[in-house]
Design a protein around this nucleic acid. Structure first.
Length: 582
RNA sequence: CGGGACGUAGCUCAGCCUGGCAGAGCGCCGGCUUUGGGAGCCGGAGGUCGCAGGUUCAAAUCCUGUCGUCCCGACCA
């Protein structure tokens, strides 16, 4: 491709709306342009990178035995009603009626395709002999992000690879999951990403039934914890802590309990400021409706409750914060003044709560708190649980180490679904004895364009992007410095032709521009290997070769340049693939 | 949806407080010079100052509303 004949609008200045490196660089390097909040056009350079990622994903999916198909983005709302997800998804699901003659057809734009693919399999798979099977597609997905942000990292329309496995039993599901897990490791490695699989919220199957693949990045949206001693990693929602049940007994020395006025102070922050205490001295009391029964959940004031952990602790199916009316009925006080003392409802406490001496908590009456609250004397518990989000410094659940916090970009997710969708949509098979069973499913997603964004977010220097060879829009950039010099141009043309013929993606910057200008653009768009053809070098019979990450050029005789480039590309490709797990 | 910021040329921004000719740099077009790290000089094109209403002799500037974009949070895989 010749630069002047393609479309690479680079920018010297940093667009005011872009805050994070990937967004700034993708705009400046001419990869994307914004159309509206949460929707971007991929320009030729950006789209080439996306396509390279797609090709790698496709290759690895097929290598792992998955079969490609293509489902419509437009799906009947009816299927979503059958699984209940039309409500679960809420406003994030884009759905609207289509007018067809005198009737309306309600449709959704698929944010994922469990419904459609399960319905397909329900119709086509009848026998255990047809299983297992894993299918995948690469397609545009839609989610109405109420607050799109971080450039292309979080948009309302995005490219996703989604795969679905169907099997007869847990063994087949585990096999498919393992296949996908390994394929994902190869995919992210091949794309040149530093990534980390972390345990994620597992849903109905339990155990290690879900992993997210995270790219560590300051600007990542997700928070994860990890242990450097044993390698345990999980997202903060999922992360267990290595804390045990403490001794539940009244402290040896405690103050008298006292009622204090805390007018209008219903939050931990307000109360701690008003009373001059640390949030960690407070007992946060949250009234949850768990399977529609009110339960008071206690966590330390500086901690955050984890609803999934609470649900697991009591084996419940639904959990939500109670509405203000319920809270008033249960505690006798407006929201913000609940406490465990004298509360007539079940108490569920986090481990750390039992270790608070002279705690401060709501008095179950408006504008008042209690101080000097102690377990054993003022309220009692049978046991305690791990009910809160993990934080930095918590003991590791797997070893003697401690947990650290980090942020990351989620680029992939593998999940054992179980029978949720196959049951709802009657995707059943007959076994050897003619008994019907719902199929066991797994689902496996990869954010295709998010891989490109994650790369841009983590691989750059002061001058611009730094692509790995594997997903770079072009592999080689040929720069003739002076296009009015016939010798320079014919040498450049010859190199360009030969490399193109040899099957490489070559871009030639034959614009009429000064050398400095071209070098700046070259650094910005970050093509890995650069061949510079200049009049001075040619006079000595050489051209210059430079990797994007090199500080200096290497002079190569003109008649060897094509072979040298081919060799270096082969070496780099091989070096990159050394990193890819088997 | 709650909180905050910002909307002036393609991009980055000044002008707004204290109302009185629509500005700069970069980019773009033409010309000359220059040619190894975002060149120099000369000439030029380009704006419904987000939109609507109000105040005023007069509004980019003051007031009200509205739309858009970004950031923090809520929500969300």
């Amino acid at each position: 491709m010749r630069w002047s004949q393609t479309f690479i609008p680079t920018m010297k200045e940093i667009p005011a709306d872009a805050e994070i490196p990937s967004h700034q660089l993708m705009l400046r390097a001419g990869l994307i342009r914004q159309v509206m909040a949460g929707a971007y056009t991929y320009l030729p350079l950006g789209w080439r990178a996306v396509r390279k990622v797609e090709a790698i994903v496709r290759e690895e999916m097929e290598r792992a035995g998955a079969i490609e198909l293509f489902m419509p983005a437009l799906c009947p709302a009816e299927l979503w009603e059958q699984t209940g997800r039309i409500d679960d998804y809420g406003n994030a699901l884009i759905n609207f009626p289509l007018v067809r003659g005198d009737r309306q057809v309600r449709v959704v734009l698929g944010p994922t395709h469990e419904e459609v693919v399960t319905d397909l399999m329900a119709r086509q798979i009848k026998s255990y002999k047809q299983l297992p099977i894993t299918v995948f597609q690469i397609q545009t997905k839609f989610r109405n992000e109420e607050r799109p942000r971080f450039g292309v990292m979080r948009t309302s329309e995005f490219q996703m690879k989604d795969a679905y496995s169907f099997g007869t039993d847990l063994d087949q599901l585990n096999d498919a999951y393992e296949q996908m897990y390994q394929a994902y490791r190869r995919i992210f490695s091949r794309c040149g990403l530093d990534y980390r699989p972390v345990e994620a919220e597992s849903g109905p199957i339990g155990g290690d039934a879900s992993h997210e693949f995270m790219v560590p990045a300051e600007n990542g949206e997700d928070e994860i914890v990890h242990c450097d001693s044993c390698g345990y990693a999980a997202n903060t929602e999922r992360a267990e802590t290595g804390r045990g049940v403490p001794e539940i007994a009244a402290p040896a020395a405690m103050s008298d309990r006292a009622l204090v006025d805390t007018p209008e102070a219903g939050s931990i922050e307000q109360v701690s400021r008003m009373l001059g205490c640390e949030p960690s001295q407070m007992i946060k009391t949250l009234i949850y409706s768990i399977d529609d029964e009110p339960v008071a959940v206690l966590v330390r004031g500086d901690h955050e409750a984890n609803e999934a952990k609470i649900r697991r602790a009591v084996g419940a199916t639904t959990i939500e914060l109670s509405d203000p009316e319920t809270i008033t009925r249960v505690t006798g006080a407006p929201v913000g003044f609940a406490g465990p003392v004298g509360l007539d409802c079940p108490l569920l406490a986090d481990h750390d709560v039992a270790q608070i001496t002279d705690g401060i908590t709501g008095a179950n009456q408006g504008d008042a708190h209690l101080t000097g609250v102690n377990i054993g004397r003022d309220y009692s518990l049978d046991t305690t649980h791990d009910l809160r989000m993990a934080t930095a410094g918590d003991p590791c659940p797997r070893c003697d180490g401690s947990l650290e916090l980090a942020r990351g970009i989620e680029v992939g997710h593998v999940f054992k679904l179980g029978t949720k969708y196959s049951t709802a949509l009657s995707a059943e098979y007959l076994d050897e004895n003619e008994n019907k069973h719902p199929m066991l499913m797994g689902c496996y997603g990869i954010g295709i364009n998010r891989i490109v964004a994650a790369l841009a977010e983590t691989s750059f220097d002061d001058n611009g992007l730094i692509w790995p060879l594997s997903i770079s829009p072009f592999q080689v950039l040929v720069i003739p410095l002076n296009i009015t010099d016939d010798d320079v141009m014919s040498a450049a043309e010859s190199i360009y032709d030969q490399l193109g013929t040899a099957g490489f993606d070559v871009l030639m910057d034959e614009r009429k521009a000064r050398p400095g200008f071209k070098f700046k653009d070259a650094d910005l768009i970050g093509i890995p290997l650069r061949v510079i053809v200049g009049g001075k070098g040619l006079a000595d019979g050489v051209v210059e070769l430079k990797w994007r990450t090199d500080s200096d050029v290497t002079r190569i005789p003109l008649d060897q340049i094509v072979d040298t480039v081919i060799n270096e590309l082969a070496e780099r490709t091989s070096a990159e693939s050394q990193q890819v797990p088997e």
